[in-house]
Structure formats: structure tokens, C-alpha cells
């Protein structure tokens, strides 16, 4: 029988037989190396064995059965409403988008504000490759090899002022370059926010690439936020402004549907979205669903940020 209900939900995830053993149509891609996926998807060679650089049990919390999602899926299944609401819209509609030259403004409660050309902006930190799980609020997930710098390095260089408590991010607003902004699906520009301690957390990245290459436009070129323990929509794309503030920033999805999307957006299998369960997820490329892990499997690193908080209320 092809379909079987899960019975092993009470086991720790590490002891569950990987579902990929039952049926995984794309396993061979990952197993054969990322190179093959790249040829299939983009026709270009990628750095060899990127996955091997980060074995299981690294500080980034990769599980044994986490295999990078093929390039073809990472770059064609996107939520980026600035380029259309369909999953395959961004790959098509962002083709002509020019992510250079690009300026990032750092301002608000910092001692050293400024407008930085992207190249100078990135000098704040060291560019690294990191493979993270990515869990969308829509209950699908991927494993993505990001490239980027730590947000903490950017903030340290700007020197937060004593009263600063939050970081606000803003996407480019330019309907001529981002056609999706011509319709009112969200209140533009897209805005997101983090508490300062979340922003300073070593897992928090500003990504400039995937699979060792520059970010494709549909993935948020040239600069996007990556917070792997939060739902994907926290990962604001095409960032033009980073502002420090003492008030909790307004965020785009919270503004659109406050009962469905909160400020924290932490991955939490025990708190359902009003319209669907968050207990399980569908890993892109796999048929059977996986159990969703608390904080997307990064509880060891981030749970302490939320001690004493009611995560049911602060969703």
C-alpha cells in the first residue's frame, strides 16, 4: 500500500525511519550530488559536495535525513507576491529584475547609520555557506543551502543605541520593477521585524546566495533575511532598509490577517494556523508528510529566547 498513516509520532525524529526510504522521487538527485540537480535545473555547474561540508549534528541542527532540496524546486516554487501570487509566478515575472546596483539603508536607533552600496554593506561580515531547513507557514518545507553573512555582524557595525529593542526590515517598493505591487494583495512595501536578540542570534542570516551562487531574483535578490526557526514569510526579500527601533514593528502579513499571522511566526507544531494544522509538513520532493519539529528543529539554539512566553498567544 502506498499511503500509510503515521504511527510513530511519539518517537524522537532522529529515530524515525526516513520517509525517503519509502518513496522519494528526488532522492537520487541529492544522493548523486548537487551537480546533477544543477544541470537539470539551470544547466550550470555548482560547487561540488556542498552538502558534505556540513555533516549531521552540526551546530546548524541539520538532521540525518535532511537532503538539500533540488535547485529546480528552490528556484521555481516561491512565495514572493511582489512578482505574482502563484508559486511559479516569481521565477517568470522576476526575470528582468535588476538587483544591482543596490543600496541598503541602515538607520533608526543606531550610532552609525548610513546608506551602503551592497558591496560595502556585505563587508560587515564573513560570507558563509549554511544549510538550513525552511518551513513555510503553508505546511511545506525545503532544505536550502544558503550563502550569506550573519545579521549580527551588520548590527554590530551599526552599533545599536541603548534603547533599541527591535529591528524592522523593508522590501524595495517600486511597482515598475515589481509588478505584483500594482495590485493590493498586501499593503506595500513588505515589512518584517525581529526582536533585537533574535536579530543578533547566530542562526540569523542575511542571505545573498543559494547553492553557492548569487540569489536568483525569485528568491529575493540581492539580499534577504533567513531565520530558520521561523515560518518562511519572516524571510523578507530584496531588503532596502534595516531600521532599529524601540517599538515592535508592524509586519506585512500581520497587517493583512492578524488572527492568522503574528509577530513571532515561530515554527510550532502545537499551534495550528486557524485554517490548517501545523503538526506535519510536506517536504518538497517527498510524498509522505513529516512531523514538524518545534522551532523547526532549532529548539536547542533558540528556545531560550522565548522562556516564560506563551507561544499560543505570541504566534
Amino acid at each position: 500500500m502506498l499511503i500509510r498513516p503515521r504511527t510513530s509520532a511519539d518517537l524522537p525524529s532522529s529515530e524515525i525511519t526516513p520517509e525517503s526510504l519509502y518513496l522519494n522521487r528526488r532522492e537520487w538527485l541529492a544522493a548523486a550530488g548537487l551537480t546533477i540537480g544543477a544541470i537539470a535545473g539551470a544547466g550550470t555547474l555548482l560547487p561540488r559536495g556542498l552538502a558534505a561540508q556540513q555533516p549531521a549534528g552540526t551546530p546548524y541542527g541539520l538532521q540525518k535525513d535532511d537532503k538539500p532540496t533540488p535547485w529546480a524546486d528552490v528556484t521555481s516554487y516561491n512565495n514572493f507576491y511582489e512578482f505574482g501570487t502563484g508559486k511559479d509566478d516569481p521565477a517568470e515575472m522576476a526575470k528582468g529584475f535588476k538587483p544591482r546596483p543596490w543600496t541598503v539603508k541602515v538607520d533608526g536607533m543606531v550610532k552609525k547609520p548610513g546608506d551602503f552600496a551592497l558591496e560595502d554593506f556585505l563587508k560587515a561580515g564573513k560570507v558563509e555557506d549554511r544549510i538550513y531547513r525552511h518551513r513555510c507557514v503553508e505546511a511545506w518545507s525545503m532544505v536550502i543551502p544558503w550563502r550569506g553573512i550573519m545579521l549580527a555582524d551588520v548590527l554590530k557595525r551599526a552599533e545599536p543605541a541603548p534603547g533599541a529593542k527591535f529591528v524592522e526590515f523593508t522590501t524595495l517598493y517600486d511597482p515598475t520593477r515589481m509588478p505584483g505591487q500594482r495590485s493590493d494583495v498586501l499593503r506595500w512595501p513588505y515589512r518584517e521585524g525581529l526582536r533585537l536578540d533574535e536579530a543578533m542570534h547566530p542562526l540569523t542570516m542575511l542571505a545573498t546566495g543559494v547553492y553557492g551562487r548569487d540569489l536568483p531574483n525569485q528568491n529575493g535578490a540581492p539580499l534577504r533575511l533567513v531565520t530558520p526557526w521561523k515560518y518562511g514569510f519572516k524571510g523578507i526579500k530584496s531588503i532596502v532598509r534595516i531600521r532599529l527601533t524601540d517599538r515592535q514593528p508592524e509586519t506585512a502579513w500581520n497587517d493583512s490577517a492578524p488572527n492568522e499571522y503574528g509577530f513571532y511566526c515561530n515554527v510550532n507544531p502545537t499551534v495550528d494556523h486557524p485554517r490548517w494544522s501545523q503538526a506535519k509538513e510536506r517536504r518538497i520532493g517527498e510524498f509522505l508528510r513529516r512531523p514538524t519539529l518545534m522551532f523547526n528543529g532549532y529548539a536547542d539554539q533558540v528556545a531560550s529566547l522565548y522562556t516564560g512566553m506563551d507561544l499560543r498567544k505570541n504566534y
Binding site: 522521487r25 529546480a72 524546486d73 508559486k87
Partner: peptide
């Protein structure tokens, strides 16, 4: 898509 790793219906 499921059995032969095509993407007629996309990634999901």
C-alpha cells in the same frame, strides 16, 4: 511527478 521525478504539476 511522484514516480518519475517530473514536474508537470510543479514542485508540490
Amino acid at each position: 511527478d511522484v514516480l518519475r521525478d517530473t514536474r508537470w504539476l510543479g514542485s508540490n
